[in-house]
Structure formats: structure tokens, C-alpha cells
Design a protein around this nucleic acid. Structure first.
Lengths: 184, 184
DNA sequence: TCTATTTGTATGCTATAATGTATAAAAAGG
DNA sequence: CCTTTTTATACATTATAGCATACAAATAGA
């Protein structure tokens, strides 16, 4: 029995218990036999993707809910705790706030750019996407040679797996929130 | 043949072509037979979770990469386009920037709170989690009766499926970035 | 153009997923 | 406590996943 089967078994059983459903009920909801639901929960069988799909749909949960592992409560990150990363002679500063987590697939930064400060990025991992909101100042973001002029309060999302740049075109500090999503 | 099989077929074939791998090579990397890889790509078979796990690991991609559907490039959201939601007699304003997307599982807002403005939340959907960073002013966030005093540049993440409140304890506008994650 | 190599597909066989049914065990109700 | 109902598991059968092998088709190189 593979580890992934155990994970699936635990998650399915946990969901079923939490919702207070019998094997019979899950069977009705999903269109998968009661005996098969039981086999899966005991880790006695490695179900096909079609079967899992039916179960996920029947229980109205996602695949990842069935194949991932759980985590804990509130956590504060003070600015003083953050190890800042500088580029462009200190004119571009990145504050890594919430690191990447495998089961969430995103990480969060805040960014500060001094006037005329800039950063060129060759692009991140495949399929990555950035979500940026301007909280102070202004910025010109270039993606695939397209310039996007953003003012205070504006936002942009773009595919981050290609060359892109950030440039503070104003005369005061620019501050951005940055959420980077990775599909894998 | 189920729809999920077609999706899987398309994604696997796309990855293989992109990486310029032969069926033989994917077979070596994953430990799944060449014939089976071919069957999966043609949608001729509904593989078990163990088989998909092996393929995902062999190709170093996630499950979601194999079972999800692709999207387009950069998109700008100007502040003027955002429909603001107000609470507490206008002292608490929410700007929905990037709406929830099923395949990413998070949504992004910015929030503005006037001095003494506050909001009580009974909690969102099960397992939801909030990631907040202060970009201006200060805020007291309460989660499970615990108060967290955050200053400019500080951040917090907390389980959002329980009662929580936001209160501007300062004497000027507070601005927050808010990323809400939902497991399903 | 021809030959050798690589690649994808077809086929038959084995292993196992998935089911329906029977039954033992657990839970609910009087 | 006893009886009925519900629930989970065992078992036999059917369908199909997964594999090894052969071969046709496509590609690469001389």
C-alpha cells in the first residue's frame, strides 16, 4: 500500500466523520459503491481518478482536500522580524512575510521601491502568477514589453514566468503588496 | 470516457510535449509503463491514484497541474474600477481586487479603516485562512478573544473560520492588504 | 533517397479496481 | 435487557487498469 493511499484514506474518513455520513450515504452522494468507499478508507484499494472525482464531487470538496495534509492557528509577523532583501543598491527592497506553503501554493511579500529604483526579473517558475496592489506611490510594471502604469490603489495580476520589471516612476517611496502563486 | 480523463490526458500530453519527453522517457521517470502513459494520454484509461502519483512525482509536478485547466496573461485593476463595500457607517471599506478562483483558492482585497472604525466577523467558510499586512496606520485584530496589535509593516495570518474583528486604534487611516485562502 | 533508430499504438495476459450481496457487529429505541 | 435497524466488512464476480511485447509509423542521419 502506497503512502498516497493512506493519505486519501485518512482524509476521506475524516470528512465523512466530520459530516456524520455513513458509507451508504457517501455512496449515494457520489455514485461509488459502498463497498468501494470502505475499501478506500481502509487503504485496501487504489481508486482510479474517475472514482475519486466522483467522490470529491459527491462530497463537494476538491481533489487537494482529499490528498493533502492539515495545519495550525494565528501567527503574527512583525516588520522587525522580517529579513529584508535588497536590490538595485538598496532602492528595491523585498520583505518576505509568509513563505511558500506546498498546500496553499502561494507566498506573500511587501515591496518598497525608492524613486528611480527598479528591478528586472527574468521570470519565476513555470506557470507562476503575481498579484500586486499599490499601497503608496506609483509604479511602472513591464511584462512581455508591455508597460503598465499603476497608481496608488491600482492592482495588476500577470503571468510571472516571463521577463518582467518594476520601476518607481514617481518622486516618493512606492509600496506594493505582492502575492505570488505557483501552480506546482 | 469521463471529462476528468480528458483533462488529465490533455495536461499530461501538454507537459510531455513542453518538456520534449518521449513516452519511454516519462515511463522511466515515473515507473509507469510506456503503454499506460500512452493510454492515459489518449483518454483510453482511468488511472488509479497511485499511477497518477507516480507520474506527478516522476515529472515533478503537482496533482493539480495534472487535473486543472489553464488561464491568460496580465490584467490590471484600477482603483476606480473597484466596487467598494462599506461597513460601520463607512468607516470600514473593503476593495475586492482579485476574486476567488477555484484553481487558486484565494482572493485578494485591500481594506481601509478610519480611526475608531471596526468590523466584527463571525467567521468565513471552514478552514479559511487570512493573511494580512499593514501598509498604513495601525490595527488591533482579535481572533478567538486574543488581541493582536499590529503596526505599519506588521503582518498576521489566522484561521478565519472563527469570530474575528478589526479595529483601527490609531488616529489616522489604516490600510491593509488581505489575502483570504480557502481550502475548498 | 535509403537505412537505422525512435516513437506511439495494438494486443493479449495478469493483477486489481469496483460492484452486488450476504453477514457480523454496532447502534438505536422500547 | 432485548429487538430492530443501521453500519461496516467479507467475499465472489465482473470489468478494467497496467504491463510486456510486437509492430507500424515517424523521425533522424548518412
Amino acid at each position: 500500500m502506497e503512502e498516497i493511499q493512506k493519505i486519501l484514506a485518512r482524509n476521506l474518513k475524516a470528512i465523512r466523520e466530520k459530516e456524520k455520513l455513513s458509507l451508504e450515504k457517501v455512496s449515494e452522494l457520489s455514485g461509488v459503491s459502498k463497498a468501494m468507499i470502505g475499501q478506500i478508507e481502509r487503504g485496501d484499494s487504489s481508486p482510479t481518478i474517475t472514482t475519486i472525482w466522483k467522490i470529491a464531487n459527491g462530497l463537494k470538496v476538491s481533489f487537494t482536500t482529499l490528498i493533502n495534509v492539515p495545519q495550525p492557528d494565528a501567527k503574527v509577523v512583525l516588520r522587525s522580524e522580517i529579513q529584508v532583501l535588497s536590490e538595485d543598491n538598496g532602492r528595491y527592497k523585498v520583505f518576505p512575510i509568509f513563505p511558500f506553503q506546498e498546500n496553499k501554493r502561494f507566498e506573500i511579500y511587501s515591496v518598497e521601491i525608492e524613486p528611480e529604483g527598479n528591478l528586472n526579473s527574468v521570470g519565476h517558475r513555470d506557470g507562476g502568477e503575481e498579484f500586486i496592489t499599490v499601497f503608496d506611490g506609483e509604479v511602472i510594471i513591464t511584462v512581455n514589453d508591455c508597460n503598465y502604469n499603476l497608481k496608488n490603489g491600482d492592482s495588476i495580476r500577470f503571468k510571472a514566468d516571463r521577463p518582467h520589471t518594476y520601476y518607481n516612476s514617481g518622486d516618493r517611496l512606492t509600496r506594493l503588496s505582492m502575492t505570488i502563486y505557483y501552480p506546482d
